[in-house]
Simulated assay, not measured.
Amino acid sequence: MTSGICAGRVVAVTGAGRGLGRAHALAHAAEGARVVVNDLGVRADGSGAPDGGAGAGNPAYAVVDEIRAAGGEAVAHGGDIATSEGAASLVATALDTYGRLDALVNNAGFLRDRMLVNLDQDDWDAVLRVHLTGHFLPLKHAAAHWRAEAKAGRVPHACVVNTSSGAGLLGSVGQGNYSAAKAGILGLTLVAAVELAAYGVRVNAIAPAARTRMTERTFADTMAAPGDGGFDAMAPENVSPLVVWLCSTASADVTGRVFEAEAGRITVMEGWRAGPTADKGARWTPAEAGETARALLADAGTPGPVYGAR
């Protein structure tokens, strides 16, 4: 059952051809939003870039067809949102097609996992480019539009939902590039939430866990089983209701927050906070600093384990 919580709003979702992005696009459309469905149509490691989305091989067009078949409104965008031109054209597509943009869901990404000693710079650069730059540039161009609207006296009720990961919160063995990019997204979210508040823009982030192309081996054995009510705990559709709510006007007072979302669980994440501290009021000697650090560590909480650590 739907409520129309996003009726009349225009939402752009990146990486929306498959997985979480597809689920977000369909969920927004089901709640009355008009959706710009972005996808470059590449493989799970980012290789095999197509012709910019004009071909039938880009899954964004299939998602648009699904939305339209269900009576919704959507348009496909096949540009590379990790380039300034592609990010600008994403915003332009929303404005040219629907005359407005109310929300941006940054979701696009891929994996190139390696242990650090085997990680090539090309794989480092590629993953940071699609995840971190691919968040920054759409946010920048959308924010520029919303700032112009605010300065013209039309303060928007706009929002951005960024996609981080448990790897960005805790780290993940074999995913140094991905973990660094996802941690960077959290920092970007916090800064953007403060900088854009004056223009009527809210910025939040999610750290989802779901079965997608990037995690299908991790969650291969978590399909719904007979007798469990048919609940597939790792289905990407489980994450989308929170994203839809964050993109609606119902979440008007929520910004600068990070949520974990998995199966039927939602958690507000509380990031770095000052723990035990000591102040000598003067410079420490190395021995004093070490002795003090050990005393502080004894009083500090234990960090969460890095994913994959033994």
Rank of each mutant, 00 (worst) to 15 (best):
A44H: 09
R211P: 08
V239Q: 01
D232W: 11
G17V: 05
T133S: 13
G71D: 13
G275I: 10
T218K: 10
K280Y: 11
E262F: 10
R43W: 02
L111F: 04
G52T: 09
L186C: 11
P305E: 12
S84H: 08
A152I: 08
L137Y: 09
N107S: 05
A44C: 02
R9C: 03
L104T: 04
T14M: 08
A250D: 10
A29P: 12
A152R: 09
V244L: 12
A62W: 12
G78D: 12
A69K: 06
A183E: 08
R294Q: 15
E73C: 11
A181D: 11
V173K: 06
H141G: 07
S248D: 11
R129P: 00
A103D: 07
C159L: 03
Y61D: 12
D125N: 02
P305H: 12
V161K: 01
A261K: 14
L186H: 09
M234D: 06
G227I: 05
D51F: 00
D299R: 15
K151I: 15
A25G: 04
V243N: 05
A300F: 13
V13S: 00
L95E: 14
V191F: 01
R273K: 03
R129N: 13
A23R: 03
K140W: 00
C159Y: 00
L132A: 11
G78T: 13
A300K: 15
V10F: 04
L101H: 11
R273N: 00
P303Y: 01
W284M: 13
T267K: 12
T218S: 13
R310P: 14
E31L: 09
K182L: 11
G275C: 10
V130W: 02
L101D: 12
G256W: 00
G230D: 05
T255R: 13
R213I: 01
T133G: 02
V244A: 14
G230L: 07
H24Q: 12
D122F: 09
S3G: 07
A94C: 07
A70V: 09
D120F: 06
T212K: 05
R22L: 02
I81P: 02
V35R: 03
G109F: 05
D51V: 04
V36Y: 11
N58F: 10
D232K: 03
L20T: 10
Q121R: 01
L190R: 13
T14H: 08
Y178E: 10
A92H: 07
G187K: 08
D125I: 00
N38L: 02
A74N: 04
V13A: 01
G15P: 05
K182A: 14
G187V: 06
R257V: 11
R283Y: 11
V239T: 12
G256L: 01
D228H: 02
S3K: 15
D122A: 15
I67L: 02
A220Y: 04
A197R: 07
A205Y: 02
A207F: 03
L196W: 06
Q121T: 02
L119D: 07
D80A: 06
L90A: 03
T249P: 09
P241W: 01
P156W: 13
D45P: 01
V155D: 07
G134A: 13
F110I: 03
S89T: 15
V35M: 10
V161I: 05
V173C: 03
